[in-house]
Amino acid sequence: MARRDAMPRPDAEATDRPMIEMIDVHKWFGEFHVLRGISLSVGRGERIVVCGPSGSGKSTLIRCINRLEEHQRGRIVVDGIELSDDLKHVEAVRREVGMVFQQFNLFPHLTVLQNLTLAPIWVRRMPRAEAEAAAMTYLERVRIPEQAHKYPGQLSGGQQQRVAIARSLCMSPKVMLFDEPTSALDPEMIKEVLDVMVSLAVEGMTMVCVTHEMGFARTVADRMVFMDMGEIVEEAPPVEFFARPRSERAQLFLSQILEH
């Protein structure tokens, strides 16, 4: 695993405070207890892959990090800002945290370039020309600058997801959240998206990815987080997690997904 060793390692001692800190977080949907005491700390430049069976609360967990869902108990602190009912804090966190969705969620009425420049112009108050220039460099990084003036509906799924990644990067986030970014893609397009994500990891982006792409997890993750029934059941480096899962639930889960 030469590539893995080439990646910049987060220096745990040197980072004074973690990028994301979740302390005993609970969340209910009505009566349903989705998150049951989640504690998770993500260091600067660290790459976390979250996996677990369907309905275990993976999406809910990462959606709590940028408050697309509200938690009811416990604390979530992102880059020193605590998420609370205070909208100012929420907006400050959202400016620093990028998110990529399973369904891309590009804005269909705007061109690719407009999708990329909307937030920099209106949230970061960047002059239009500057925002467009930045957008073009990010489109080059995800290798589709020639699509800048098309509408999302004219692109393939893989291209749309790369645009979605570029759109988040345009806000220069400190953290990127990915919620099953490749699950809605045809198999032949998965690689082009994973390649972009790997290159982000190589550059030292702090990442939290929910994904079932175990090859990607092996290459990129510093830590695997295995969830079941709203709890973090196991946390381990990928080598350890894949070779010797400690819990029975993780063993069962791995045997199910690695069969395919």
């Binding site: 969705f101 590009l106 804005f107 937030a119 209106w122 949230v123």
Partner: peptide, 26 residues
């Protein structure tokens, strides 16, 4: 779709700008 509003929120657009630039035009 709800995802449109969520994507706008995730970009930090806030309620009014999300409505004005993303949701209402559609």
């Amino acid at each position: 779709p709800r995802g449109q509003y969520e994507a706008a929120q995730a970009l930090g657009l806030g309620y009014w700008r999300a409505m004005a630039f993303v949701v209402l035009p559609q």
